[in-house]
Simulated scan of single mutants.
Amino acid sequence: MTTFHRSARAAALMSAAFAIAVTGCSSGSGDPGVTHVTLIQGVKGNPFYTAMACGAQEAAAQLGVRLDVTAPDQFDASLQTPVVNAVTAKRPDGVLIAPTDAVAMRPPIKNLISSGAKVVEVDTALEDTTVSTAHLTTDNQAAGKAAAAKFNEILGGKGKILALSSAPGISTNDERVAELKKALTNYPGLEFAGVQYTKEDATIAASVVSAALTAEPGITGIFSVNSPSTQGAATSLRNAGVANRVKLIGFDAGPQQIEQLKQGSVAALVAQSPYQIGRDGVQYVVDAVAGKEVPKSSLTPVMVIDVKNLESPEAQNFVYKTDC
């Protein structure tokens, strides 16, 4: 995994990630006999999906398969559906996809499978678990428990926690919030203050947090389940001058999130394993295409990173690799 990138380097990497998402990338040859796999990300330019693409590229190169990468401009089923339809028309052998809605993406994914593609869901998932060959995601139960324990530590065992999610119906986000709420019951001094939705937009997140703090001054912790919401929440807390009092725990460990952690805008990060998801996902698809059995459901680990453990070898293994 990569070490911390400075801001200029991070900006260049994100530009490269955007180019990859728009134009696609390939591994292997154009030989019709070569297995063709496509990764359909949840959204362009997100460090989590960029790291996932890096892992997928590594596996594709090792396995000698062709890999294309594509994504919608926003994390939205209405925008991802035409992307899936365009991929279906190209008739790849296998597809990794992060569904942007647990229900709405079922029909286009079913059509994709009907075209002959083996489909593995990565990160997010459909509500109907019978559709795809396999599902590979973060251990969101462990993530919720870890976040609750960290809040208990940094808030001294007492506080009120607001959760920020994108929108209802996104499997990973829903599970993270549910698991946090459940885990907070293990700490009598901590209270769940509900969930508010940001449409995975930093500007909306900043507005939501500002309004929530005005309506409920007792909020002392914010749990953000995606990086845009974390960015917006950090901005709101900084502008209000309450970052020392209201502790923010966010998801992901891309360059921007690490910068926020070092600056003190974020108290801790729940880091996922997107590189492993991409790498293992390509292996699963290739095995499925070859008729081999693959695990129906697999989980990848998480780690809570703060400024105290950031430079440790273990934490560095969880910092997202976006330079590939």
Rank of each mutant, 00 (worst) to 15 (best):
S229M: 10
N173G: 09
Q141D: 04
S210C: 15
S26R: 12
K158V: 09
L269C: 06
I204C: 03
I113A: 14
S114K: 11
S265M: 06
V83K: 03
V270S: 03
D280S: 03
T70V: 03
I154M: 14
G218P: 02
G55T: 05
Q257I: 07
A253E: 06
S27Q: 15
A243I: 06
T23F: 07
K90S: 15
G144W: 00
T133P: 00
G169V: 04
K199H: 10
M105T: 11
V122S: 02
A147T: 02
A56T: 07
T130W: 06
K158R: 12
T214M: 15
F4S: 09
L269W: 02
T130P: 03
R9S: 12
E200H: 01
A53L: 03
L310I: 09
F318I: 04
H135T: 07
G157C: 05
Q316W: 01
S171M: 09
D68E: 11
A143C: 13
Y49P: 00
V87F: 06
P72L: 06
I305L: 14
A212Y: 00
G254T: 03
A205V: 08
V289K: 07
V307K: 15
Q41N: 15
L261C: 10
V83E: 08
D323W: 08
S132C: 11
G30M: 04
A240M: 15
A193P: 01
E311K: 04
A146C: 07
V286E: 07
I109R: 00
R66C: 15
G144C: 11
R6F: 07
T124I: 03
G28R: 05
D306A: 09
R176E: 11
M303F: 09
T203Q: 07
S227H: 09
L13M: 13
C324L: 05
T214I: 06
A142N: 03
E179T: 10
T130R: 07
F4Y: 15
A202R: 04
T23Y: 04
G189A: 10
I219F: 05
P82D: 12
R6Y: 05
A167Q: 08
Q41D: 10
A163E: 09
Q257E: 14
D76Y: 09
Q141P: 00
G281E: 08
V270E: 01
V286Y: 01
E314R: 12
L13W: 03
V95Q: 01
F18G: 08
K110H: 07
S297W: 05
A212M: 01
A315S: 14
T185N: 04
G169F: 03
K292G: 13
T138F: 02
Q283H: 09
V84I: 15
Q80E: 13
A56N: 07
V177D: 02
Q316R: 08
M105A: 11
M1R: 14
P295V: 15
N317R: 10
V131K: 05
A149G: 09
A60G: 05
G241Y: 12
V270Q: 01
S165W: 01
Q41M: 09
E259W: 02
V84C: 07
V95T: 05
A233S: 10
P72V: 05
K199C: 10
Q316V: 08
E314V: 15
Q57I: 11
V285L: 12
K158S: 08
T220H: 01
G24E: 13
Q256M: 09
G42D: 11
D201I: 08
F151N: 00
T70S: 14
E311M: 06
S166P: 00
A183P: 03
A51K: 01
K118I: 08
S26T: 07
P274A: 15
